[in-house]
Nucleic acid binder design. Structure first.
Length: 555
RNA sequence: GACCCGGUAGCUCAGUGGAUAGAGCAUCACACUACGAAUGUGAGGGCCGCGGGUCCGAGUCCCGCCCGGGUCGCCA
């Protein structure tokens, strides 16, 4: 399957339109794309096009006449069985023999089903989570995990070479503060009466890190002044955090290709190089001893944003621009997709302005997800590492498992805010829709086992025997997966996969009720239906695979 | 004040400008001596926040307003 079914249908309609246009002497109607959708109402066929409605004004004809003229000229040949026109729509019905034959195609394709080469040859970097390396992963900053991981999987599925990247921000103020926080705890552990200042990280894990250092080195560092200790301990703290991040993301089934260090980027000289380029472009100015980027895209009254602080330290924006330039130029990615929390939306405005100035805007994409709050003592709260108030990702995974955790994050669109109630999540984990989908998969596996025990397999099954609506509707649904994957390639709405999984599983459960698959009295039909449920299983497995969720044969 | 996201069934949410707005949960009533009941069938439940506009057609696009969340730092 090299092209998408809907594209084939659209091409057939376009061909019909072209013929109608020449035969009837219509004015030129170039440039109008043929859109094809799956109508919600089955009476309207398998695909519908609104082309006649779109053309009506321009052609100064009634939509019905246009639709009729097109309908009469669309070539009817598999996969198309019939073309109808109704209220200005051109509706297409798929050929049922052709549909049945797709069962073999899908079952045979197996792990290849749904794949494409749409992005073959493209190198893409998907950067996600990348939380400040100053504490463990919380449910808030973890939301980017499943989003980024599944998007990466989909992009790979359509042929791209994808690198999953965790950007380690191991320079800057927060990094220094983290080191100082550890140093203070270290001193406290040695009996020093020193308070934790307000801007430090107060949480318990900071003590754990300090205790680890003490256990290993004793009072070896006590003679150093605080700032020197901070410098010494910050990288150790980051090591600890990254070790945790690696472990916990792995629990979620996420495996990064690169853990890219900001410090390393700074050492590469890219920061200065990028600054020089921006300066050359005339996008940079000096004020109050700092270096600023001109806010050409500003949506408010700001004139610019700081790239280098007046104390000489590189600012976050400057570093992030340089990091992106390095990824897209030196590291050679055709596209960099960042999965960011919505609190960075102002940063995104700044980044877009910078990327535009540098001519890299078309290679820079961001998926913003809204924040996750959590229920703490009955009250919804935002999480913040610096306030020491958060719900650990690890605790959630341990409570409800990897699959339910991933599914929870992937159910709603990134644009929607999530509220997390751990108690409720545990209580409801058995009702997580992921099990509904997995159950469909396991049920099919069970049917195949039972059939095999009774000496019936799908071998030699003739899918031409699949003629019932209930049977063919399953095929129709399965065939939607490649199109859905292509939608996600374009719009990044990975949550649609969970909706689809639910729909396919539901369709199968309904089919199961009405149709006996294994029937010793009718071996040919059994074989054909076994083939069918195998195809459904393939579609389910492919979908769950993209979601990073298991496809169990037994539950 | 400016900008971003959300407001759809009691709850949680789907819904690429199309034709009669969907699912899960919850409630009620049913269905296992049949391939897995973690299932299925049926019922009830909707001014798609409000008001304008564009369009042949608006839950979807535009404008205004209301409500909830977020952001606007020489932090990251």
């Amino acid at each position: 399957m090299t092209t998408l079914l809907r594209d084939d249908i659209a091409a057939a309609i376009k061909d019909g339109l072209a013929r109608a246009s020449t035969e009837l002497g219509w004015p030129k109607v170039d440039g109008v794309p043929i859109e094809v959708v799956r109508p919600g109402n089955p009476e309207h066929g398998d695909y519908a096009s609104n082309i006649a409605l779109r053309l009506a004004r321009q052609a100064r004809m009634s939509p019905r006449d246009i639709a009729k003229a097109i309908r009469e000229r669309v070539r009817v040949a598999p996969p198309i069985a019939a073309v109808e026109d109704l209220s200005g729509f051109v509706n297409v019905r798929l050929d049922e023999k052709w549909l049945a034959a797709q069962v073999d195609e899908i079952a045979r394709a197996g792990a290849e089903f749904g794949r494409s080469k749409a992005l073959a040859g493209k190198r893409m970097q998907v950067e996600f989570v990348s939380a400040n390396p100053t504490g463990p992963l919380t449910v808030a900053n973890a939301r980017g995990g499943p989003l980024g991981d599944v998007l990466s999987s989909v992009l790979e599925f359509v042929g791209a070479a994808v690198e999953r990247e965790y950007y380690v921000e191991d320079t800057g103020t927060q990094f220094d503060t983290f080191g100082r926080s550890i140093a203070i705890r270290y001193r406290q552990l040695h009996g020093e009466d020193i308070e934790v200042p307000e801007d430090a990280y107060p949480a318990e894990y900071v003590k754990d890190i300090a205790a680890e250092i003490k256990a290993r080195d004793g009072d070896k560092w006590m003679k150093l002044p605080l700032e020197a200790q901070a410098k010494r301990f910050a990288p150790e703290g980051v090591e600890w955090v990254l070790r945790e991040a690696r472990r916990v993301t792995a629990m979620l089934g996420i495996h990064y290709d690169t853990w890219f260090s900001q410090a390393e980027m700074m050492r590469s000289g890219y920061f200065e190089k990028t600054l020089a380029e921006l300066r050359k472009l005339g996008k940079v100015y000096e004020k109050d001893g700092a270096v600023w980027l001109q806010a050409t895209e500003a949506v408010d009254d700001k004139e610019g944003w700081v790239l280098v602080r007046s104390n000489g330290d590189p600012g976050y924006l400057g570093k992030d621009i340089a990091y992106h330039v390095q990824s897209l130029r030196e590291r050679g990615f055709d596209k960099k997709i960042d999965i960011w929390g919505s609190n960075t939306h102002y940063h995104l405005i700044q980044m877009r302005a910078a990327m535009k100035a540098l001519g890299l805007l078309d290679k820079f994409e961001v998926v913003l997800y809204q924040y996750v709050r959590f229920l703490h003592e009955g009250v919804l709260k935002r999480m913040a590492k610096r306030s020491g108030q958060f719900l650990l990702l690890e605790d959630v995974i341990e409570a409800v498992g990897k699959d339910a955790t991933r599914y929870f994050f992937l159910q709603s669109s990134a644009d929607r805010q999530l509220d997390f109630d751990l108690e409720l999540a545990v209580q409801q984990s058995n009702e997580n829709p992921v099990y509904y989908v997995q159950y469909a998969h396991a049920r099919i596996a069970s049917i195949l086992r039972t059939a095999a025990e009774r000496g019936i397999t799908s071998d030699g099954g003739d899918v031409a025997l699949l003629t019932e609506k209930g049977e063919l509707d399953l095929v129709r649904l399965a065939l939607r997966l490649p199109e859905l994957v292509d939608d996600i390639r374009q719009h990044y709405g990975v949550h649609q996969l969970t909706t689809y999984a639910l729909e396919l599983a539901g369709a199968f459960h309904g089919f199961y009720r009405d149709h006996r698959v294994v029937d010793e009295a009718d071996a040919p039909r059994s074989k054909a239906r076994l083939r069918l449920v195998q195809a459904v299983q393939v579609a389910l497995r492919q979908t769950l695979g993209l979601l990073g969720v298991n496809s169990p044969d037994k539950m």
